[in-house]
């Protein structure tokens, strides 16, 4: 029986050092480390994220977001957490159903200020000073595919998928599924170094606030390194009724795709109604960050054991 770790002793030590440096970074910048439960009676309704049911009435958390926002609403001030998160059915060289997140929230920040802080954090974790590029989601599609996602018709997007990605039956794909496929298979492989993709279309707003400058976009960003997605962040949505509406739409989508509908997190919605301070938050995948820092190709190489 192969019982040995999939990570080398050196990689295991690198992970320990990474955690020490992260904690040192936040200790000197007025951000409190917190620990929230991994099990909850409610879970993420996002139709593209599947929860693992751990018990008759408990779900393993797909991220610590709802619990951390309840702390923020209770007046915690800026907080961070290093924890495991769980997503059913995700497995590959870059995915594990159980993975490690660094998630943090800055009270009074918007997503731009949070991107600035991410740059400082990542520079403090790596041996060199890195360059970070920022490009909007719309410009990314214009640059790499010559497509204006603001005006393109669904039929044209489907044609691009079928023609540029051999063996793809794009007739059944929705607009957003086409965008997901194109960014995953065509665009991200062309991205070099650290790139922040910013200002996502509203259909991909998730828990982000609508942009004040241009209401067609959400104040959301993702960080990539050489095409590997590392982090997702928002200027956080603080409006409880808009949030409830997005949850209900998620569950309608779930119904449409015959996916299980999840109970809404009413405690989270109540916290929003009580008042979430203006803040920005981001989740950074620490396993993937370790892959980048150690130049490894497979997530199994940075986790102590295979599943």
């Amino acid at each position: 029986m192969d019982w040995r770790p999939t990570a080398t002793p050196q990689t295991i030590r690198s992970r320990a050092r990474l955690y020490q440096k992260i904690r040192a970074f936040f200790a000197t910048s007025d951000c409190l480390e917190v620990d929230t439960p991994l099990l909850s009676v409610s879970t993420n309704t996002d139709p593209n994220i599947a929860s693992i049911v751990a018990d008759v009435r408990l779900y393993l958390q797909t991220s610590p977001e709802f619990a951390m926002k309840r702390l923020l609403a209770a007046g915690s001030g800026s907080i961070y957490q290093i924890c495991h998160a769980f997503r059913a059915g995700e497995r590959g060289s870059r995915h594990r159903s159980e993975f490690t997140l660094l998630e943090w929230y800055r009270v009074g920040f918007d997503y731009r200020q949070l991107m600035d802080e991410m740059e400082r954090l990542i520079n403090s974790l790596s041996d060199q000073k890195n360059q970070f590029l920022r490009v909007s989601y719309t410009d990314l599609f214009k640059q790499h595919l010559g497509v204006d996602i603001d005006s393109v018709e669904l039929i044209e997007l489907r044609n691009i998928c079928s023609q540029r990605i051999p063996g793809t039956d794009s007739e059944q794909l929705t607009f957003d599924e086409c965008l997901d496929l194109l960014i995953s298979l065509l665009i991200s492989p062309l991205m070099e170094g650290y790139v922040f993709v910013t200002d996502y279309p509203l259909s991909q707003a998730s828990l982000a606030r609508v942009s004040e400058r241009n209401p067609k976009f959400a104040e959301r960003f993702e960080l990539y390194y050489n095409g590997l997605e590392l982090a997702n962040g928002f200027s956080e949505l603080t409006d409880a009724s808009v949030q409830r509406q997005r949850f209900l739409e998620d569950n309608l989508q779930r119904q449409k795709f015959s996916l299980p509908e999840y109970p809404l997190d009413e405690r989270f919605l109540s916290a929003l109604a009580a008042g979430l301070p203006d803040c920005a938050g981001v989740a950074l995948g620490l396993d993937r960050l370790l892959m980048v820092l150690l130049e490894l190709d497979s997530i199994d190489q940075v986790m102590s054991f295979s599943d």
Partner: peptide
Amino acid sequence: NEFVKPGKGQAFNR
């Protein structure tokens, strides 16, 4: 078999 998925998006198998 390669599993691809943007964090908040649709998953595909290539």
